Amino acid sequence: MALLEIRVTGDPVLHTVAQPVTDVDDELRQLVADMYETMDKAPGVGLAAPQVGVPLRLFVYSYVDDDDQPWRGVAINPTLWISPADVEELDEEEEAEGCLSVPGERFPLRRAASALLIATDLEGEPVELRVDGWRARILQHEFDHLNGVLYVDRLIMPYSRRAEKAVRKSGWGVPGISWLPGRDDLEG
């Protein structure tokens, strides 16, 4: 296994719709293993293939809930159905979200409370997950990556302005910037 460089906002692969996976082969299995290792080292709770420069519709996720129950998997060619989002005022702490492609920054974002993921796994078997809370947030975040959308693209004022300022101040927003977990200090 190998750590992969994580692309930072501004890289074209992060802002382009990913292509469907057509073959589940040893090369794809190696990519998924490397993505798990990279996500764990970063550390993160999800990582989409475009974040490591691969424009394919797949992501990995890993989360341990408050009851120490691990939740880990891969979603290949996923579709995602979500519940309607609340219209209440954002809770800046409870709804704060981060992204390995916008390292070290966190901003509140309203997400749907529940989600249904339909995908396949590395064996070509169907995966169907009905989740809520943070698990739903993770799936929505990673699914957005497959459609060329970063969470900062969805922010409302004043958080969108703060995110734009943070990106400019960091020198991001241009092609070619990446970081490697364990080597670079971008992980914040």
Rank of each mutant, 00 (worst) to 15 (best):
A163Q: 05
D65F: 09
P50Q: 07
D132M: 05
L31Q: 03
L129Y: 07
W81Q: 15
I138S: 05
A112P: 04
C99H: 04
S101E: 00
D40F: 13
E125T: 09
P55G: 08
A33G: 11
S101T: 07
T120K: 08
I156E: 12
V52S: 06
V45T: 09
R162K: 14
A49D: 02
D40K: 14
G46A: 13
D34F: 07
F143Q: 06
V17G: 00
M39T: 00
L47I: 11
L58M: 14
R57W: 02
Q51H: 10
G124K: 07
V21S: 03
E94M: 15
M157F: 03
V17C: 05
T9I: 14
R161Y: 02
E123Y: 11
A49S: 11
E5R: 10
L58V: 05
G176E: 09
I118C: 05
W81E: 15
A85Q: 13
S178W: 07
P78K: 08
G124W: 03
V102M: 08
E187A: 13
A18Q: 04
R106D: 11
Q140Y: 02
D65P: 02
L90M: 12
L117D: 02
R29K: 15
T38K: 02
D184G: 12
A85H: 10
Y36T: 06
D34V: 07
A18I: 03
S170C: 04
S83M: 11
P126H: 11
G182F: 09
R183T: 12
V8Q: 04
G133W: 04
R154A: 04
E95V: 09
R137C: 01
L186N: 05
E105P: 01
D65Y: 10
V174L: 10
E125S: 15
L14A: 00
V131P: 00
M35N: 01
L109A: 12
L116T: 14
Y151C: 04
E88Q: 14
D67C: 09
G98I: 06
L122K: 06
R106E: 15
G10L: 03
W134A: 03
V74C: 05
H141E: 03
N77R: 06
R106M: 14
L180Q: 06
G53L: 11
V167G: 04
L122W: 01
P126T: 10
L90E: 08
V152H: 03
T79S: 15
Y36P: 03
V149I: 15
L56R: 12
L58P: 02
K169N: 11
L129A: 07
V149D: 01
S170G: 07
V149N: 00
Q30S: 14
E27D: 14
W71G: 03
D25F: 10
R154H: 04
P55M: 09
D121E: 10
Q30G: 14
P70Q: 12
E105Q: 15
L58G: 05
P84N: 11
G176D: 11
D121P: 03
R7E: 03
